[in-house]
Amino acid sequence: MINQIPINLLRFIFLLLAQLLIFSNVNFSSFINPYVFPLFILLLPFETPRWLLMLLGFSAGFALDVFLGSMAMHAAAGLLIGYSRPFLISIITPKGTEFEISPNVYAQGLTWFVVYLGVATTVYLTFYFLMEAATFLNLFFLVLKVILSVIMSVAFMLIFLYLFSSKKQRRFV
């Protein structure tokens, strides 16, 4: 359990830099704003207590906010998925599944991960874009932006997962 801290810290720094220097810097389109950063919160160990999930989501989002100049919008969205992550996992996981320490694409399977990332990213981005626009006008634009951004974000997240996940099938008993 102890060696989870350096792994997650490393992942946090890597995702923060990737988000700042690549995904928030490359100009895809006004409809496509990919955010890979929520992956940090989504890949925390299953056993993480809920208060810690919320605090980590909040502070990680705040770190991103400081660099992007968006005050506390990412902090609010990160806090929301930190809070709702346990619900989400319990809904989409079949009963009696054995877990590894952290979510792993080789252990949980691609389908589980696509649903997991898809739902969590949709929640995150909908909340973030709504806060950013601060209005419900232009709803069509917002919906299209969320859909396209979620597709791109999940695609980039899956690439990250297949590049950096460990293949060892070590079951957590």
């Binding site: 919320m54 909040f58 005050m71 902090a75 609010a76 806090l79 929301l80 809070y83 601060a134």
Partner: peptide
């Protein structure tokens, strides 16, 4: 937990707006 969640969210909204 819910109270922690709500109070942090309110804090975020306060900072943002």
């Amino acid at each position: 937990l819910f109270i922690l969640f709500i109070s942090l969210e309110v804090f975020c909204f306060y900072l943002t707006y």
